[in-house]
Computed example of a mutant assay.
Amino acid sequence: MIDVRSATVQFGGVTALKEVDLAVDRGRVCAVIGPNGSGKTTLFNTISGFVSPTAGSVLVDGRDVTRVAADGRARLGLARTFQTPRVDVEATVRETVLCGFLPSTRSGLLAALIRTPRVQREERRLATEVDELLERFGLEGHAGHRLSELPMGLVRIVDVARAMAMRPKYLLLDEPAAGLTTDEQQLLVSEIRRVAGEGVGVLLVEHNFVLVQDVSEHVVVLERGAVLAEGAPGVVAEDPRVVDVYLGVTDEDSALETT
């Protein structure tokens, strides 16, 4: 379980997170929503090790990783995507997804240079696994395309596939549906459900609340860096505070629409 306890993050005199608690269990999907500037990305960065909290702690499977760097957390099974994908636009789709496997490769530099039988077996295994991921995400027809040749929606799908190549225990997705077509969103939803069904804990930051309701089991709503509400998607959707600050339809608005 990812266990965030009373996480507070301050940048100078600005409090970006204020005593936030969050739990992500293996095999479940948790979503974080909130208006722009509510602290969603700061929370992601705190969990993944790109930001150190001013106070509070982050635990992964019972281990305190509050002061562990991002690469150390990745080795513990955390994988993430970014709101703006961090990719080499000149790399091909296949090369990008293959990069996701690198942290789990077992061959050393010398063995790779002389191409020992073990290295050759590993290369064949990776090639097969890359092909399987490309097929799962509908990317097999784009395998040789450079990322610069693809629309942003497909680049986001490639980024998710690369994160899954790390074989994570926990997958953090930052705005993965932005720019995706309806068909691509449906593919994303099915893959999120699939990886959760395989025992991966998924934490999702997403503005598309319809998608959030479709795929998540628990929703946390942030407002000005603090938790405003949390619960099942249907419960959160009916919370007047959430409707007012995030979903954008107040009781007064509804009354006006019916008169």
Results as ranks from 00 to 15, higher is better:
residue 45 N to H: 12
residue 83 Q to G: 09
residue 75 R to T: 03
residue 22 L to P: 15
residue 93 V to S: 07
residue 38 S to V: 05
residue 29 V to L: 02
residue 15 T to P: 08
residue 71 D to N: 10
residue 77 G to P: 13
residue 92 T to N: 06
residue 68 V to H: 01
residue 36 N to G: 08
residue 60 V to H: 06
residue 91 A to F: 14
residue 13 G to K: 12
residue 62 G to F: 14
residue 69 A to E: 14
residue 20 V to F: 08
residue 27 G to W: 12
residue 32 V to K: 02
residue 89 V to K: 10
residue 53 P to H: 00
residue 50 F to I: 13
residue 65 V to Y: 06
residue 34 G to F: 07
residue 66 T to E: 06
residue 59 L to F: 14
residue 41 T to V: 11
residue 55 A to R: 15
residue 15 T to E: 09
residue 77 G to C: 07
residue 46 T to L: 14
residue 75 R to Q: 12
residue 68 V to I: 12
residue 89 V to P: 01
residue 82 F to M: 03
residue 40 K to T: 12
residue 79 A to F: 08
residue 61 D to P: 03
residue 39 G to M: 11
residue 70 A to M: 10
residue 81 T to S: 11
residue 75 R to H: 13
residue 61 D to K: 10
residue 81 T to R: 01
residue 69 A to F: 01
residue 58 V to K: 07
residue 37 G to D: 05
residue 82 F to A: 01
residue 41 T to Y: 04
residue 16 A to R: 07
residue 79 A to E: 02
residue 84 T to R: 15
residue 70 A to S: 14
residue 85 P to R: 01
residue 39 G to T: 11
residue 51 V to Q: 09
residue 49 G to Q: 07
residue 65 V to M: 05
residue 68 V to L: 13
residue 80 R to A: 04
residue 62 G to Q: 12
residue 16 A to M: 02
residue 12 G to M: 00
residue 35 P to H: 02
residue 58 V to R: 08
residue 58 V to L: 13
residue 45 N to A: 04
residue 90 E to C: 01
residue 67 R to D: 12
residue 62 G to T: 13
residue 65 V to F: 10
residue 28 R to G: 01
residue 43 L to V: 04
residue 30 C to S: 04
residue 84 T to K: 14
residue 78 L to F: 10
residue 91 A to H: 14
residue 12 G to R: 03
residue 35 P to G: 06
residue 54 T to N: 03
residue 24 V to D: 04
residue 50 F to H: 12
residue 18 K to E: 13
residue 10 Q to L: 08
residue 15 T to L: 00
residue 22 L to I: 06
residue 41 T to C: 11
residue 67 R to Y: 00
residue 42 T to Q: 08
residue 84 T to C: 00
residue 56 G to Y: 01
residue 10 Q to K: 15
residue 65 V to K: 07
residue 26 R to M: 03
residue 32 V to P: 11
residue 86 R to A: 07
residue 90 E to W: 13
residue 32 V to I: 15
residue 79 A to N: 06
residue 89 V to F: 13
residue 43 L to N: 09
residue 16 A to V: 03
residue 17 L to V: 03
residue 26 R to D: 01
residue 54 T to M: 10
residue 37 G to T: 09
residue 65 V to H: 05
residue 56 G to F: 02
residue 59 L to R: 15
residue 83 Q to L: 05
residue 90 E to A: 10
residue 28 R to H: 15
residue 85 P to V: 02
residue 93 V to E: 05
residue 44 F to T: 09
residue 71 D to H: 15
residue 42 T to A: 01
residue 36 N to C: 05
residue 60 V to R: 08
residue 72 G to E: 10
residue 26 R to Y: 03
